[in-house]
C-alpha cells in the first residue's frame, strides 16, 4: 500500500512533538516518553503522579478530535496487516520498550535532543531492526 510523501505536514507535526517535549520538561521536569508515561500509569503508588500522566494521555487522545474539528476529517489509520500480527507486534513492542527503557519519543526525540549516548544507540538499533523486519516480511516472505 502506497502512502503520500508529506514533507511539510511531517515537519510541522514533528515541530509540535518537539514543542510538547520542551514544554513538558520546562514546566513539569519530565521526559516526554510514551513508554515511561504508560508504564507509570500501570503503577498506582502516587496519586498526583498518576493523575498527571492520565492528563497527558487524555490530551494526546484529544489530538485527533481537534484535527477533526479543524479539518473536517478524522486522521487516516490504515493497518495493512492481519489481526494476529497487530497483537503479536504489540506484545513484542511492549516487552522491547520495557527493557530498552524508552521508545521513539523517549529515546528517539527526548534522549537524542539531550545528546544521550544510550538514546542514540537505542534509536539506531530499533530503526535498524524495524527496517530489517519490514524487509523480511515484505520482500523475503512476500506478505
Amino acid at each position: 500500500m502506497e502512502t503520500a510523501f508529506t514533507p511539510w505536514a511531517s515537519l510541522a507535526g514533528g515541530a509540535l512533538i518537539g514543542l510538547a517535549a520542551v514544554l513538558l520538561m520546562a514546566i513539569h521536569g519530565r521526559i516526554m516518553g510514551a513508554t515511561g508515561i504508560l508504564g507509570g500509569l500501570m503503577r498506582f503508588s502516587d496519586l498526583a503522579d498518576w493523575t498527571l500522566r492520565a492528563a497527558i494521555v487524555a490530551g494526546m487522545a484529544t489530538g485527533p478530535l481537534v484535527y477533526l474539528l479543524a479539518t473536517g476529517r478524522m486522521p487516516v489509520i490504515e493497518q495493512p496487516i492481519p489481526l494476529w500480527a497487530t497483537i503479536g507486534g504489540g506484545l513484542i513492542v511492549g516487552v522491547g520498550v520495557s527493557y530498552a527503557g524508552g521508545c521513539t519519543s523517549g529515546h528517539g526525540i527526548c534522549g537524542n535532543a539531550r545528546f544521550s549516548r544510550r538514546s542514540l544507540v537505542a534509536t539506531v538499533t530499533f530503526m535498524t531492526t524495524a527496517i530489517a523486519t519490514v524487509f523480511v516480511i515484505r520482500h523475503i516472505l512476500g506478505a
Partner: peptide, 23 residues
Amino acid sequence: LVLGSATFGVGWGIAGFCPGGAL
C-alpha cells in the same frame, strides 16, 4: 538497552504502531 531496542524495532516493523503513535 540494545536487546530491548532491537526487540522493539521488530515489533514496530510488524505492527507499524509505536507507543507514542498509538496513544
